[in-house]
């Protein structure tokens, strides 16, 4: 009897809820974990977009980034009846079932800043910060320009199975092997710091000990590049070993200013949030279609095309940060 009562009340509540927010589109962004500075800027993109277009935005994230920690949050959003779930997935496959039940209820599922590679059929579209096929080559060019295109280079990555990093590292290996411009550079090692400062530091120290002639280190992960820079700074060898990679300007500013790091790259996380909310609203109100090859306009970003696999990029190439421009970025 209690159960019946519960069901009738919920039905009544669901009705009123449906009417109350008929105009605005409810978007929720599920981050990897709370306290991750990377997502502060991404979230801001959503917030700002929802101030100019018709959407309500909420950010939620689990306390830790383990594979299943996002599931209760997704279930809760389905229960709340949001219109769009944007998510930076913590697992490429553990979320499939939840995504399916969300989409059965008519919720649009967008992966943002990382995709569920191999399980693309469980989401509607993915919004990636840049064309990931070019990241490897860009990073090799970056480190090459710092070391005069000559000498030993190593990679300090995140975890051994991080899909994005592994994809980029593949690109780095191909570039160095095939492009004659980099014929005098050798990639001597790839090590993994698990995105923890302690482990990244010991791995970096081990690189320096194992390869005394090392000229450059590429760390395509925000934790890794900061740890690598710190090791170089503390040893005072910034002119012998060049550290570069993908980093957050807010975390790297000090290292750039004191000359430890000459330059590094990233994209704008802010634009991912900005684009995702415009796209979500466009899909819901019918002004945009989620078809490969379709194009649409986003203020400040210009014309955006939906690529193969319903994948959308916010910018075509990486942004390079150095002493000249680092103060222009506040994320």
């Amino acid at each position: 009897m209690l159960k019946k009562l519960l069901i009738t009340t919920t039905a009544a509540l669901a009705l009123t809820a449906g009417n109350a927010f008929a105009e605005d589109i409810d978007i929720v962004f599920v981050g990897k974990n709370t306290g991750n500075p990377y997502f502060d800027s991404l979230t801001q993109g959503f917030v700002d977009a929802c101030e100019v277009i018709a959407c309500n935005f909420e950010f939620v994230a689990p306390a830790t980034a383990e594979a299943t920690s996002q599931i209760p949050f997704l279930e809760a959003q389905i229960q709340r009846g949001v219109d769009v779930i944007a998510i930076s997935p913590n697992s490429p496959d553990a979320l499939n079932q939840v995504f399916d039940s969300a989409r059965e209820k008519g919720i649009i599922v967008l992966t943002v800043n990382g995709d569920i590679t191999g399980n693309e059929e469980h989401r509607d579209a993915t919004i990636l910060p840049t064309d990931f096929t070019k990241v490897g080559a860009d990073q090799i060019e970056m480190v090459g320009s710092l070391i005069g295109y000559e000498g030993e280079v190593a990679i300090l990555s995140a975890t051994t199975e991080a899909p994005d990093q592994n994809f980029w590292i593949e690109g780095m290996n191909e570039t160095i092997a095939n492009d004659p411009k980099y014929a005098n550079m050798t990639l001597v090692a790839t090590v993994y710091g698990d995105d923890q400062p302690e482990k990244s530091t010991t791995e970096m120290e081990a690189l320096l000990a194992n390869f005394p002639d090392l000229k450059g280190v590429i760390a395509p992960t925000t934790v890794g590049i900061a740890a690598a820079a710190q090791v170089v700074q503390s040893r005072g060898i910034a002119d012998q070993v060049k550290v570069t990679g993908l980093g957050l300007p807010s975390e790297m500013r000090d290292f750039v200013k004191d000359g430890t790091v000459d330059g590094f790259q990233l994209w704008s996380p802010y634009n991912e949030g900005w684009l995702a909310s415009h796209f979500a609203v466009g899909l819901k109100n019918g002004s945009m279609t989620n078809e490969v090859g379709a194009t649409f306009e986003v203020p400040n970003l210009g014309t955006i095309t939906i690529n193969e696999g319903n994948s959308i990029n916010t910018q075509s190439a990486l942004t390079t940060f150095n002493a000249d421009n680092i103060d222009d970025f506040d994320f």
């Binding site: 519960l6 919920t10 509540l13 209760p72 279930e75 809760a76 229960q79």
Partner: peptide
Amino acid sequence: LSPFFLDASYIMRS
């Protein structure tokens, strides 16, 4: 706290 909470099937699923 939330109007969406009191739903037996949701609590079961959770």
